[in-house]
Design a protein around this nucleic acid. Structure first.
Lengths: 176, 176
DNA sequence: TATTTTGGTCTGGTGACAAGACTGAGTTGC
DNA sequence: GCAACTCAGTCTTGTCACCAGACCAAAATA
């Protein structure tokens, strides 16, 4: 997507956003980052993505300033930057659309709640309790009624079987 | 994107949404539909997209129930369905992110206002006046302060040089 | 120190995309 | 009513991205 012949000549914010996050897999990588995934191998196992493509996407996201690669000595970790966290509304909106218009049973696979008050978000990402639109750091993801038909066994899928505060690392550097 | 080897096995709403709208150009086609573009040739001229790809995208969107192809006798037109209109929050969110984090001058290229009260939307799509989140049919698009540096001369670009109620056809069937 | 895990790179085959020629139906001018 | 033109595609060819899987070096573990 990111090539010169792309839609960059379009003087359009949407086109520029898509240059960064519009490629295949990119959004799913970012979604996992919001869930707390930070390691190459965890993304690889959870997404069933090719190594080369994952390498490429992570590199592009780092170049774009959406992720930072942290590697002081040990294995590198990828963390969302402010710009990355600002993508949450886009991911949430797409996810909600997918649930409403592109899902078979249309039972939510995951639900998001405002951590402070425990209220479940509406489809616009608003907390009906507070009336605010909480950022991803204030949310809890939990499995919904339409949970996985074919449960996966990778580390990420397992961790997501119970409610989790978003953006908390799946494994912390210390225990890794 | 829509192939069997895609990410459909992911029991994930985001993945399913991306199966429909995640391909290159798809989002930009839809954005133009929100602006009132309905004709193949207008999309072609405004997006600088290959004919074959545009044909493919429109077909896929029709198959997915996001657009309908209306062609009683005359040239066909493509209109957003309810499912299509429901994609507006996703497009708006991406567009806002692009403006804030992926744009050079970061002056908004276009601004969106609530038609009823004329108030400009915030970055979450809320009307600060009413406190509501208006649907696309209640919005007006207007050129913003960071307008095109290299103005385009195709019909769509010209029409968008002045404020327009969203979803109103660029050219009506009668005058076409 | 030996073994395994992790985070990549490299290669070959396949599918998607860009650019442009071509075509047949719909529309317009006369 | 006919010719010219527009419109909405299809088809072809070359290039590029993606996938699967082999391979490899550094880090972690036993």
């Amino acid at each position: 997507m990111a090539l010169g012949t792309g839609y960059s000549q379009q003087n359009c914010n949407l086109a520029r956003a898509l240059e960064v996050v519009g490629e295949r897999w990119t959004m799913l990588v970012l979604r996992d980052c919001f869930y707390g995934v930070r390691r190459f191998s965890d993304l690889l196992a959870h997404l069933d993505i090719s190594r080369a493509v994952l390498t490429d996407r992570l590199g592009a996201l780092v170049d774009a300033g959406v992720l930072v690669r942290v590697a002081d000595g040990g294995h590198p970790e990828y963390e969302l930057t402010e710009a990355g966290k600002a993508l949450w509304p886009s991911i949430y909106a797409l996810s909600q659309w997918g649930e409403q218009y592109a899902s078979p049973g249309s039972y939510p696979g995951r639900v998001f709640s405002h951590a402070e008050c425990g209220t479940q978000l509406d489809r616009f990402g608003r907390c009906p309790g507070c009336g605010t639109i909480p950022g991803p750091e204030d949310l809890v993801v939990a499995p919904g009624p339409g949970e996985a038909v074919h449960p996966r066994s990778d580390a990420v899928a397992v961790a997501l079987r119970e409610p989790r505060r978003m953006l908390t690392p799946l494994r912390s550097r210390s225990e890794a």
